[in-house]
Amino acid sequence: MKDLISVHGVHFRYDEESDWTLNNVSLSVYPGEWLAIVGHNGSGKSTLAKLLNGLLIPEKGEVVVEGYNSRDENSIWEIRRRVGIVFQNPDNQFVGTSVMDDVAFGLENNGIEREEMIRRIKASIQKVKMENFLDQEPHHLSGGQKQRVAIAGILALKPSIVILDEATSMLDPMGRKEVLETMRELNKQEGITVISITHDLEEAAKADRVLVMKAGKVHAEGTPEDIFKQSGMLLDIGLDLPFAVKLQHQMNKQGLHLSSLHLTQEEMVDDLWTLRSKT
């Protein structure tokens, strides 16, 4: 498949005297996929995200988004229009003095005409269920409400690629499910490419592809099945396994073996049911 984003041999550091923060990173992002990026604290995930939308420029190597190279100054605008990031700390993202203004701000900057603008503001704020907070100052929201508004701000811009940098870490369990479901719909129905940086391995298990970062390098890459069967490797580098996988390991210890490795509870329960009919 043709790359939507290609990252080639990227080296990056925050200052010239220190070691590489990203050390020879190469990867592809494919159109319409849901790519999860996991890795220990400080492994370079957020730095990579900022390189993908041209907020940071590599010292060596290249980032190319739909044909636009981030080194080329004239391309930066084209890249930013295509790649929207929901940052790890939403406070860094807010510019407006009300929820409404904040979402409007990005649209105004993109020269969206007024009627379309109002339509998009309403739709995106509704998607994240913040219609009752239109006049509230974003900095005066609760932790999870801030994350919802930050997501609305990016959705309104309709980028073709959305990067979620731990964007649902402060949501309550139902809220997280709903927001991820909304993103999944956009991904499936409108073909928006999603790159989700996450410590939530249940979420990563539902991705099309998983990329594992370690100390500034891409350590592994593959389907969730490929990645989560490498339990030793994951534990070694500070990660863990999805609940279903841990549960299966524990059952194995007690002499109960399932037909194959399952990443979800549903698959496991189904498999246990077949096992029962056989015994």
Binding site: N41, M170, H199, G238, L239, D240
Partner: peptide, 14 residues
């Protein structure tokens, strides 16, 4: 502790 493990990697959380 107000959400003290949000943002920590899986091993860090534990």
């Amino acid at each position: 502790l107000d959400e003290p493990t949000a943002g920590l990697d899986p091993r860090g959380k534990v």
